[in-house]
Design a protein around this nucleic acid. Structure first.
Lengths: 190, 190
DNA sequence: CTGCCACTGAAACGAGTGTTTCAGTAACTC
DNA sequence: GAGTTACTGAAACACTCGTTTCAGTGGCAG
C-alpha cells in the first residue's frame, strides 16, 4: 500500500533536486535509473521507493522544471509590472539568451517535443501548458480592452512565436547577435 | 567487409521508405528494430544487413526526412520565384498549417531536439542544417543588396522565427486560426 | 523494551535491446 | 555447372532495462 508518491519528504526533495540537476545536464531521452542513481549517490531501489516508478520520477522532474519556469515567470511579471508588451518580451529574451540557461532550455525543448510525440506519456500536456502559461503572462502586459480582442490574442501569439522561434535558432546556432537583432527588429514596430 | 551502407539498392530504398512511414507515425524516441521490422514486413537481420547498424538506419531515416523538407523547399522556391519575402513566408505557412503535414512536423521537431540533446549522436547537425537551409531559402527572396546587410539577416531570421514559433504553438494547441492570425499580423507590416 | 516507520542494500526476475553466428535461398555471370 | 552476389530466417549472445523480493537499518513514540 505504501511506496507511492505521497507528500514529498525531506529525502525525496533532496534526491529530486540532485536528479533534476543531472537531467538538465544529460537530458530525458536516455535517462536510466542505474546511472542516475550512481551519479547522485542513491540506488534504483530508493528512487523507486520514493517516486513509485520511473514514470513517477520523470513526472516529478518535469514538474520541477516547470517550477523553474514559473519562478522566472513571476520575477518577470514583477520586474516589468505596468510595463507594456514590448518590455516584457525584451526582458524575457534577455533571460533566454543568458548562457547559463542554455541547458535548461534544451531540456525544455526536449520535454516539449516529448509531449507531442507521446501525448499519453509522462510528459503529457507539457507543451500545451507552457503555451497557455506564457500567453497568460503576455496578456497581463496588454491593455485590458485590447487584451480581449482577437487582435490582442494575435499580437501576444506573435510575440510568443518570435521568442520561441528565435530560441530554436539560438539553441541550434548559438548566434546571439543575429537572433537578438531579429527580436529587436520585431520590437521596433508598434 | 560487407554488410555496411554502400550505394542504396532497390530493396534498401523500399524498406527505407516503409520504415520512414512507420517512423513518421511512431516517432524516433522509442524506435526498436523488432517492432519496426514486424510492422514493415522485414526482420532485424535484414535491416542490420542493409543499414549496417541501428544508428545507420536512423541516419538514413533522418536524411530521408530532410529529403521531404528539400522537396518542399524547392517547390516553394519555384512557386514564388521572383516573389518577395512576405509571399514566401505566406506560402510556407500554408504548407506548415496543412493537417496531413502534422506528423511529419512533429518528427522534425523531435529530430531537432535530439540533435541538441546529443550533439554527437545519429542526428548530429540536424538542427543547425535546417536553420541554415531555411535561412538560405529566405535570403533568395530578398533584394540582392539588402540581402547581404545585417538588417537583411535580421529580417529573414525574424521571418524564420515567426514561422517556427508559430509552428510550435500550432503543434501544441492545434489552433489554426490564432496562429495564422499571428503570422498574418507579422506580414502586414513592411 | 517494543513496535512502528521511513529508508536502504543486494540480488534476482523477466522482458526487451542491438548485434552476431550460422546456415541457407534465389538470381545472375562466366 | 561453378562461382559470385544480394538477400533472408532462426537462434543465440551479451547486455541493459524497470521492477520486485527479501532482508535489513536507524530513529522516534508509546
Amino acid at each position: 500500500m505504501s511506496e507511492s508518491a505521497r507528500a514529498p519528504s525531506a529525502r525525496q526533495e533532496e534526491l529530486l533536486e540532485r536528479a533534476y540537476r543531472y537531467v538538465v545536464e544529460h537530458g530525458l531521452g536516455d535517462l536510466s535509473l542505474r546511472p542516475l542513481a550512481a551519479a547522485i549517490g542513491s540506488s534504483p531501489r530508493v528512487l523507486l521507493f520514493l517516486f513509485g516508478s520511473k514514470d513517477g520520477l520523470v513526472r516529478a522532474l518535469l514538474s520541477r522544471a516547470r517550477a523553474d519556469e514559473f519562478a522566472f515567470l513571476d520575477r518577470s511579471l514583477h520586474e516589468s509590472a505596468g510595463g507594456d508588451l514590448a518590455s516584457v518580451v525584451r526582458a524575457t529574451w534577455e533571460w533566454l539568451v543568458a548562457e547559463p540557461h542554455r541547458p535548461l532550455l534544451t531540456l525544455w525543448l526536449e520535454a516539449y517535443a516529448r509531449s507531442l510525440t507521446q501525448p499519453d506519456g509522462s510528459s503529457a500536456g507539457f507543451a500545451r501548458q507552457t503555451v497557455d502559461d506564457w500567453l497568460a503572462l503576455l496578456a497581463r502586459a496588454q491593455p485590458p480592452a485590447w487584451r480581449d480582442s482577437d487582435e490582442g490574442a494575435a499580437e501576444r501569439t506573435l510575440a510568443l512565436s518570435v521568442l520561441r522561434g528565435a530560441l530554436l535558432d539560438l539553441l541550434a546556432t548559438g548566434d546571439v547577435e543575429r537572433t537578438t537583432a531579429a527580436v529587436e527588429r520585431h520590437l521596433r514596430r508598434p
